[in-house]
């Protein structure tokens, strides 16, 4: 089980993976909006998206968990 965390503070602009999806290392899970930029949040492991911990529009701080990959 791996936690995918926000690399910086910002708001969740888009979730690009759904719970239950198969994802591979490097694939984007979510895109944050911060400093007027799109910030892709990729998974660092291959597996299944077990849980998405945030919704679109949420504010996340650096280090907050975005998704859990199994």
């Amino acid at each position: 089980m791996t936690e995918i965390k926000a690399s910086m503070a910002g708001s969740v602009w888009k979730l690009v993976a759904n719970e239950g999806d198969q994802v591979s290392d490097g694939q984007d899970i979510a895109i944050l909006e911060s400093m007027k930029m799109e910030i892709p949040i990729p998974t660092e492991t291959t597996g299944t998206v077990k849980e998405l911990k945030v919704s679109e529009g949420d504010f996340v701080n650096e280090g907050d968990v975005i998704a859990i990959i199994e």
């Binding site: 690399s7 910086m8 400093m35 930029m37 892709p40």
Partner: peptide, 10 residues
């Protein structure tokens, strides 16, 4: 590197 943290300086 815009791919990581938008290329913002930390």
């Amino acid at each position: 590197q815009p791919r990581a943290k938008g290329g913002v300086l930390f």
